[in-house]
């Protein structure tokens, strides 16, 4: 008798637990925010370009829009996108590549504003290393002189199938090599630097501020894969779930206005922005200043996303291009 009850109880618990997983509706907290005011939860990944959103908070740009923005650091862009899709975050930082990856798996997302990127081409200096916050490095004294030579070699990236692997693959392909023949390794930046020192990897794809450290140790910059891939415009984006955008139109529009204002301010006051970035990341200001200049675009153009989309499909990272239309970019309506 007692056991029978237990079985029924167990089954009920299981059914409840599973149904909770099934159709997770967004939280009820969304409903209350109909006006232009409210709190927005925003995920960042703790990089130097977060300086713009920090300045928007500190200078009261969000407050002017009647918004209270709470940031929290997420482990990586995919985690942030998952949280944004489920409504745990209202907005999250995501480069265009993870965003397109997510959209190719039918995660409905919208771009609210640009978070970072590259200056328009006519404003970029000759030396791409000054623009690109990423770099492909070979150990000091390496005989590798072209990305083409990386065929059959081991190359470290911070994560597989993510931005660095994509951009390096493009650099290798453009140089006439076959990216499929590269032995990709996942290494955190500190381990990657150390592996360059000990020549355990043949090349390492690094992101600022580790690029400056690699340079100061005498490792050679083989390519600036970021700017070569993206050319110009927005790379990092403030992304939200399509449903959240629908429900919080006014706040999203306010967020976009405030962020664009902050981005513009950061571009014009680079030193102040770098100081904010140094404070955020704990990286010494001198190291940040030695690295590439961050640029904060004040708009996102669909063609920039299209370009990435097309290249992802060409390189085989996407089975086919993700269908995109102007609706992808939230325009405040």
């Amino acid at each position: 008798m007692g056991k029978k009850n237990l079985t029924v109880a167990l089954a009920t618990v299981a059914v409840l637990a599973l149904s909770a997983c099934g159709g997770s509706d967004a939280g009820s907290s969304e409903a209350e925010a109909a006006g232009g005011t409210g709190t927005l939860k925003v995920g960042t990944i703790g990089i130097g370009s977060d300086a713009a959103i920090k300045m928007a908070i500190d200078k009261g740009y969000f407050k002017d829009e009647g918004l209270n923005v709470e940031t929290s650091v997420v482990a990586n862009p995919p985690a942030g996108v998952a949280a944004a899709q489920s409504g745990q975050l209202d907005l999250t930082y995501s480069p265009s590549i993870p965003m397109l990856n997510a959209m190719s798996q039918n995660v409905p997302l919208k771009i609210v504003a640009a978070a970072d990127g590259y200056a328009p081409k006519d404003q970029q200096p000759e030396d791409l290393a000054q623009v690109d916050d990423t770099g492909l490095f070979v150990p000091k004294g390496s005989s590798i002189t072209s990305p083409k030579d990386l065929e059959g070699k081991s190359v470290s990236v911070p994560a597989r199938k993510a931005q660095m692997e994509v951009t390096v693959a493009k650099a290798v392909k453009d140089a006439g090599g076959d990216p499929a023949k590269i032995n990709w390794m996942v290494l955190d930046p500190a381990s990657a630097l150390q592996s360059l020192d000990s020549k355990r990897v043949d090349a390492a794809a690094l992101v600022a501020p580790f690029t400056s450290q690699a340079e100061s140790k005498g490792h050679g910059r083989l390519a600036s894969p970021g700017v070569e891939f993206f050319q110009e415009g927005a790379v990092g984006l403030w992304v939200a779930g399509a449903k959240t955008v629908e429900e919080k139109k006014d706040q999203m529009a306010g967020f976009a206005r405030a962020i664009n204002k902050a981005n513009d301010y950061a571009n014009k006051n680079l030193e102040e922005a770098q100081k904010a970035g140094a404070q955020l990341t704990g990286v010494p200001l001198e190291t940040l200043q030695k690295g590439a200049e961050t640029y904060w675009p004040t708009e996102v153009k669909l063609e920039e996303i299209h370009r990435v989309n097309k290249q992802l499909a060409e390189l085989g990272f996407l089975a086919k291009e993700v269908p995109l239309d102007q609706d992808l970019i939230f325009n405040g309506q």
């Binding site: 995919p78 993870p98 798996q105 597989r160």
Partner: peptide, 22 residues
């Protein structure tokens, strides 16, 4: 398997998670 060459069940599962192949 989260670091180093991306071979193994753990590495593949992590990769699938990060590429949204749920």
């Amino acid at each position: 398997e989260m670091l180093g060459s991306s071979q193994g069940i753990g590495a593949m599962t992590l990769l699938a998670q990060q590429s949204f192949m749920t």
